[in-house]
Nucleic acid binder design. Structure first.
Lengths: 137, 137
DNA sequence: CTACCTCCTGTAGCCACTACAGGAGCAAGC
DNA sequence: GCTTGCTCCTGTAGTGGCTACAGGAGGTAG
């Protein structure tokens, strides 16, 4: 059994975040030592690592909770997982496309902006009518 | 002069968000009508639109505030603006790269995941040791 | 004069943490 | 046994950038 510091090291989840996950019921409450300290088994640490990996993949906590409950079942409802993963993939792709458009807009704005110019063409363009509407979302 | 609803329409900033910007001191407090309603000039609406455009470009509010104060000055410190824009560009590019790596990781995970399979290989991979560490940030 | 719309203030919620404050457990060295 | 210093505990508040009420008042069209 490991204290929260070791569990944090092994799972890659911040100590404060582990306690947060426990408070929110995202992971089950671990046992305690005589002195009141949390004690984690290897299985519980594996669960924390699982949560971190899903989080690193950009899944929201609500989805991760569903994943966790699916891993508890013997039949792991692969179809459901695949559907959620593909939905998430779509969101990531959309985000990338948005960011690329955003980067291009910003590039074309700042291109005309030379050091030392008194009136900044970028700020001017943002102040004037007719530029850059319809970029968001 | 326009009420907050018209200002919202013309600037593309949500009414609640306009009041929020005012509370936070991001835009100056507008005048009021006899009945206590906010009244916006075209200039104030232009400022709101400027904030929205910067926000659409993904700039954080703190940077937008700097931009706003720079637009107040006659010499618009173009070098400063360019530096902040380029810094922001770097952040956007990093975000895109991260998302692309994330998308690829998710793709390779879900590829093996066929509908109807009992034990989901994606969940398995996330549970096991040795996968997907070092993806985040 | 009534119905309805827009506006007002103030507060709380969202997500996923992060950062304290103020105290207690615990191991190693003297 | 005592000190030092690390890790841990609880509880609360803050982050960013809004968004969503609740409960009431101003203003307008018919």
């Amino acid at each position: 059994m490991f204290t929260i510091g070791k569990a944090s090291e092994q799972s890659g989840v911040n100590i404060e975040t582990i306690r947060y996950y426990e408070r929110e019921g995202i992971v089950p409450k671990p046992g305690r030592s005589a002195g009141g300290r949390r004690l984690y088994s290897s299985d519980e640490i594996a669960k924390l690592r699982f949560v971190r990996r899903c989080r690193d993949l950009g899944f929201p906590i609500s989805i991760i909770q569903t994943f966790l409950s699916l891993t508890e079942q013997s039949d792991r409802s692969c179809g459901e997982v695949k559907a959620m993963a593909e939905n998430h993939l779509g969101e990531i792709t959309a985000k990338i496309e948005n960011l690329v458009r955003l980067r291009d807009a910003l590039l074309s704005l700042s291109k005309n902006c030379e050091d030392g110019t008194a009136a900044c063409p970028m700020l001017d363009a943002l102040m004037k009518d007719g530029f850059g509407d319809g970029l968001q979302e």
